[in-house]
Nucleic acid binder design. Structure first.
Lengths: 103, 103
DNA sequence: GGTATTGCTTTCCTTTTGGATACCGGTATA
DNA sequence: TATACCGGTATCCAAAAGGAAAGCAATACC
């Protein structure tokens, strides 16, 4: 029971992972483009998170030999299987948020 | 989109929250009892996590005037609404774990 | 009196996470 | 020549999370 849930949480928790995944659900993006879309995200963190997404086969990296270099990231089909899970998090989170604000 | 998902993740992430919630899904438990069931969990962390669960109305605390004092914790009905979400995390996490191990 | 149990709190310390800043090679543009 | 963009790295630091150990009031048991 515990390990799989932990695995799933590891994918999604942390300060930037979700925002990056979200940015990529709207299509391929370049490095700087992602960074511009997510205020406060430093290249170091973006680089680190993207690597983790790659290792987990949730995102893929494509390099094009242009100048300056073009690097594109996109969610893999597997990465897209996260959507229902994120949907559930959103559903529960929304109810929770209402409850807490209503107090 | 982001905030509710973040709210949900805040509830579940961290090293002990999930294990504590899980322990409580099998019924009321006393402080020391939870601690004994989760190896490595210190009283400091357990205390902290239980307080957070209480604040978020996911668990409730009942004190009985025995000696030594008896304190019982249990999931609230609201806390139990987390089950489907945890189920989804488990489902996705299981597939993910297989995939990564198969490599 | 000494030891044990319960349900914690307090203090101090280490580890992990994340942020700020600078820098790099390659290329383009002024 | 200077400046800017791209896709990052490297270095140093601060904040947050977590752990280890001790202590405490109340009571009970020996």
């Amino acid at each position: 029971m515990l390990l799989p849930v932990k695995d799933a949480l590891d994918i999604l928790s942390g300060k930037w992972k979700l925002q990056i995944i979200l940015a990529l659900t709207f299509g391929k993006k370049r490095f700087k483009q992602i960074q511009r879309e997510i205020p406060g995200l430093t290249p170091k963190m973006l680089s680190k998170e993207l690597k983790e997404l790659e290792v987990n086969e949730l995102a893929s990296r494509h390099v094009y030999d242009t100048s300056p270099v073009t690097v594109e990231y996109e969610l893999t089909p597997y990465g897209k299987t996260l959507k229902p899970l994120i949907g559930e998090l959103h559903k529960w989170g929304t109810k929770h948020r209402k409850r807490i604000i209503a107090g």
